[in-house]
């Protein structure tokens, strides 16, 4: 998500106190003990500690869900908006203020179901912000209904005999959306997750990380297949180094959409890492270009002069 101003950790004259986890901690999370979301929060603190953005320029937003309680647990400017609609709001913040760093958190229902269309359109527009989807394959807050990522056969309160609808494939959906950074991680892999979130934050454009984050209350063990200590496998994507070696050709080229799609169809539990990354111009840049052009035409006249000229034409 990082914009050109992103690196300006030392804006202003007075030396800033470094941003620490302590300064970032807010209300104690209300999540169930053992919920995967705690680890995502811990990673977010670490990312912000690394990036050292000016404290007041960080915005943490969310929709509605267990995961979407996030903003209350982080001491930054925060917004708790409505279910599934956090992206357009966050996009407004991003487009309205090029000096702030916008982070959005939410669940799988919030992002892929009720907010599914916003995901696609925020991707299409490539608005400069970072979006973290805490995917637990279930509706946590409303206590165990089928989510758009629940696998077929998952027994929920809305599918007591097992879910029958095909789940969406998050990585394919995201690559398709036009998002310019798409990655996948697991809440049990804090270093990997932190790395993915940091890369997303440093990316200029709409960057999305799906994090498998277990709901211990309603879908325990959902991601065991990716947890080595439970006999699973955490396979990561090796990215192309462009070092000219023959083995490099086997590594993943993240600018290759088709390859990203292919990786996304690996059988469960799939692979983790950066699936896709490109540097298509952001809406922020494109709009700034339109403004610059319009200003050039008006020869940077003041707002009053521009409006007065418009009214003269209506005489």
């Amino acid at each position: 998500m990082s914009s050109s101003s992103a690196a300006l950790a030392t804006a202003g004259t007075a030396p800033r106190v470094p941003l620490t986890k302590k300064a970032l901690t807010a209300d104690h999370p209300t999540w169930c003990p053992g919920c995967g979301d705690f680890a995502v929060l811990a990673s977010y603190y670490r990312v912000l500690e690394k990036l050292q953005y000016p404290h007041e320029n960080i915005v943490t937003l969310a929709g509605i869900g267990c995961s979407s309680r996030f903003p209350y647990f982080v001491n930054t400017h925060g917004v708790h908006y409505i279910h599934g609609r956090s992206l357009p709001f966050a996009a407004g913040v991003s487009l309205g203020r090029d000096d702030v760093h916008v982070f959005v958190f939410g669940g799988d229902g919030d992002g892929f179901s009720i907010g599914g269309n916003h995901l696609v359109h925020t991707g299409r527009k490539n608005v400069n912000l970072t979006y973290v989807i805490m995917d637990n394959f279930v509706y946590g807050l409303t206590k165990k209904q089928t989510s758009p990522t629940s696998p077929i056969g998952f027994k929920s309160k809305t599918d007591p005999t097992g879910s029958i609808d095909q789940p969406i494939n998050p990585m394919q959906t995201l690559v398709n959306s036009g998002a310019t950074f798409v990655a996948r991680s697991h809440a049990g892999q804090v270093n990997h997750m932190t790395e993915m979130m940091e890369r997303a934050a440093r990316h200029e454009g709409f960057s999305v990380v799906e994090i498998l984050s277990e709901c211990v209350e309603f879908y325990e063990g959902a991601f065991d297949a990716a947890v080595p200590r439970k006999g699973g496998q955490f396979r990561t994507i090796e990215l192309r180094k462009n070092d000219g070696t023959p083995e490099d050709a086997l590594r993943h080229d993240p600018s290759d959409e088709v390859a990203a799609f292919r990786l996304a169809s690996e059988p469960w539990p799939g692979v983790f890492g950066v699936f896709y990354e490109s540097n298509r111009p952001t809406k922020n840049k494109l709009e700034a270009g339109l403004i610059a052009k319009a200003r050039e035409k008006t020869k940077s006249a003041s707002d009053l002069e521009v409006l007065q000229a418009t009214f003269r034409r209506m005489r």
Binding site: S86, F89, A91, G92, V93, G96
Partner: peptide
Amino acid sequence: EDELAAAGYALGFAYS
């Protein structure tokens, strides 16, 4: 993309 999203953008602008 739709009117509810438009309200979201506008509120995001307002919040900022």
